[in-house]
Amino acid sequence: MIQKIYDWIDDRVDITPIWRDIADHEVPEHVNPAYHFSAFVYCFGGLTFFVVVIQVLSGMFLTMYYVPDIENAWRSVYYLQTQVAHGQIVRGMHHWGASVVIVMLLLHTLRVFFQGAYKKPRELNWMIGVLLFFVMLGLGFTGYLLPWDNKAYFATQVGLQIAEQVPFIGEHLLTLLAGDPNIVGAQTLTRFFAIHVFFLPAALFALLAVHFILIRRQGISGPL
């Protein structure tokens, strides 16, 4: 039955090559921990992606309860954490996942760096990876404000003060992020919410797609 449905679709849109391209490749010996245990260092990139998936899924569920508004943001998080069944675990996954993803990203970056895997022909993919790192730090910074507790509020205020000190564009940057040149308040929260949930994830997905396509085109770097 499933085979028939598959064939019906495949007859019309020829989907086999699409997934075959992902499925059909050889994993070289030097990256396979089954042969060389030290090859576990090649896992960090995959684990980063795995935690990103956890972040996306847990974040989607968090928005079912979260209200990006200064009156209710903290209350909704408090409610989620104290009243909703398993709400604490879902928020915990998103909160700790944000730290784990940075750790994994750092380990992945260091692996690539110390192996010199960014050398020709992989310069572009390295640069995309560094951009991904920046996007991830941006996600961490904007996500930190969303619970709207004291820690979030004052850390964001410091971050915005730093942005303001940038020469020439400082004030515009501050207004862009905070919604107002003087107040860290309701506008700031909705802007950070929009950046955290729409703008940065869009950039993240686009960069990830290019990152993965380039890996498939270029393959994994060879042994040292």
Binding site: Q81, S99, L137, F154, V158, G159
Partner: peptide, 28 residues
């Protein structure tokens, strides 16, 4: 780890809390 360590949440943001010492997330 997530179940063992519940995510922290402090009191609701109070812009008038002058004595509060700000602290960013550990990776900043």
């Amino acid at each position: 780890a997530t179940v063992v360590a519940p995510p922290p949440l402090e009191g609701i943001a109070d812009p008038t809390a002058a004595g509060y010492i700000p602290l960013p997330d550990w990776y900043f």
